[in-house]
């Protein structure tokens, strides 16, 4: 089994700000790999290095068997990239955008046009094919963007936050398209801020935080490290909170906001048990919230921090 992407010791700083602090990645061919992390964790920088857009300060990278430093054009010929920012030509129609890509991939006139029409059908853009891309909706632009990436039949595809800013329906369509890609044998590396996206799509997930990989594994493995869901109970005063904390001994009291955090998987049964136990004591919570694990929980579990640092502009 050969690697589609193999990176060791990737480092990158912008000025005195360390963005990547020694990253190792191994992505087997034919799999989906998700880089999960908050804004500013270094996801985009990693993608920009792996796709030859910027040079790393240190580290070795091989993409599709080509050494990034020695043979960047070999890498470019093997990859397709859909960045965070729309990379379509607004002043060309959808079809012309695809033909532009076909020409730049030297497909030849007939093959290029056939490929463009094929992709228009596949991404449900047939009707809009003759309209200027500048008039497309967000979801359509993203589909055209991905279709343009696929014109050259890349072996390795990089998707930088492919669903950020999309409505739920477009998001599901995009997920389906990504799954179809891998069914065709290509390798996908995507970045995302959403655990559910990584969960749904990725074979392997790497969690990136402040330029370091803090965890790596399948969605299942990762979830085991995350304290599952919990139920938050808010009480009227500290006395009630104290008594409840005494009864529910696996719970954590947060005195400041009078809440009690009770671990639980969020199932109806668990909820009923909890309420039964509370009823037995005669305590009445003011408010109850069921919380399912999200990226914040992963971060809390892996880094001990709840804050997800915001992206600093560069």
């Amino acid at each position: 089994m050969t690697a589609a992407i193999k990176a060791t010791g990737l480092r990158k700083s912008f000025g005195d700000k360390v963005v990547l602090d020694g990253i190792d990645l191994y992505v087997p061919r034919g799999t989906i790999f998700a880089l999960l992390g908050p804004n500013g964790a270094g996801k985009t920088t990693t993608v920009r290095i792996l796709t030859t857009l910027i040079d790393a300060d240190a580290g070795r990278v091989e993409v599709a068997g080509h050494d990034l430093a020695a043979d960047p054009d070999g890498v470019r010929a093997a990859i397709g990239v859909t960045g965070q920012f729309s990379a379509v030509d607004d002043k060309l129609t959808g079809r012309e955008n695809l033909i532009l890509m076909a020409d730049l991939n030297h497909l030849g006139r007939t093959r290029g046009r056939r490929r463009a029409d094929e992709l228009l059908d596949r991404f449900d853009l047939r009707e809009a094919a003759g309209k200027l891309a500048g008039t497309y909706s967000g979801g359509m632009r993203r589909r055209l963007d991905l279709a343009m990436t696929l014109v050259g039949d890349p072996q390795v595809i990089f998707l930088d936050e492919p669903t950020t800013g999309l409505d739920p329906r477009s998001r599901r369509t995009m997920w389906q398209s990504i799954e179809d890609l891998v069914a065709g044998g290509v390798t996908v590396l995507l970045t995302t801020q959403y655990l559910d996206e990584a969960d749904r799509l990725a074979d392997q997930i790497a969690v990136l935080d402040r330029g370091r990989l803090v965890a790596q594994g399948s969605a299942q493995e990762l979830k085991r490290r995350v304290p599952g869901g919990h139920i938050r109970l808010r009480f009227a005063d500290t006395t009630a909170l104290g008594r409840a904390a005494h009864v529910l001994d696996d719970a954590v009291a947060e005195d400041a906001d009078l809440t009690l955090r009770v671990p639980g998987d969020g199932s109806v049964q668990a909820l009923r048990d909890l309420l039964d136990r509370l009823d037995a004591t005669g305590l009445r919570p003011e408010e109850l919230q069921v919380h399912t694990p999200d990226l914040d929980d992963v971060f809390l579990a892996l880094t001990g921090r709840t804050d997800t640092p915001q992206e600093t502009s560069r």
Binding site: R76, L104, N105
Partner: peptide, 13 residues
């Protein structure tokens, strides 16, 4: 300054 330059730069052209 648009996104398309990154697309061109990541292609073997």
């Amino acid at each position: 300054t648009g996104g398309i330059i990154d697309r061109f730069r990541t292609m073997a052209i």
